[in-house]
Design a protein around this nucleic acid. Sequence first.
DNA 1: CAATGTTACGATACACGTAATCATA
DNA 2: TATGATTACGTGTATCGTAACATTG
Lengths: 102, 102
Amino acid sequence: MNMQQIRYFLALSEERNFRRAARKCNIAQPSLTNAIKALEQELGGPLFWRKRPRIEMSTLGDAVLPHFTRIAYELESMHATAKGLAGTPTFPAAERDFMMTT
Amino acid sequence: MNMQQIRYFLALSEERNFRRAARKCNIAQPSLTNAIKALEQELGGPLFWRKRPRIEMSTLGDAVLPHFTRIAYELESMHATAKGLAGTPTFPAAERDFMMTT
DNA sequence: CAATGTTACGATACACGTAATCATA
DNA sequence: TATGATTACGTGTATCGTAACATTG
């Protein structure tokens, strides 16, 4: 599983439409189909039911949604943290503590 | 970024040794080096300081560790959830709600 | 020199796009 | 028949392992 798949899943759960979700993620429609299919295979069941005109979440999809949401949040805040530290000299923790106590 | 990289990072932060961490992850040592290097590139700085005899966390490494820990936890509990639903007929949520209220 | 980390490099697998096909409202 | 999802397939990139090299205690 990769992080992109999580972004794709969340986009699809918001849009309920492969076309729009794919555009939102800046990928082609078939790529989204494949990514979601791989995710479903990994989790052992369908995440969405392909219905017209809108796609519906499956029970499994509903179950994993909050987990993916939290993971996405962690990733975002982590990147923000990393960005905040960019450029600063990141000494090893031990040395940093040493410097602070001196 | 992929989930493997997170597992690798956590293993390395526990072992503080590429050799042991790689064995723990069932990959070769050079693969771990490459994976960590890619992660460091993505986050914009070193996560570890390569010292003998033990590796030390950098400030950035310390900063992202709790995020990765929480992500790993989410993944684990999500897989447990998915496993619990495996085999059960996962109707679309709408239909399931319909069935429940009838 | 023994132990540990990094480069180099080739093979396999994966992600993505384009084009063609299928399904349904 | 128009819209939207899937399948087929080619291509570039990434991941991984083996082997050779570098470093340091």
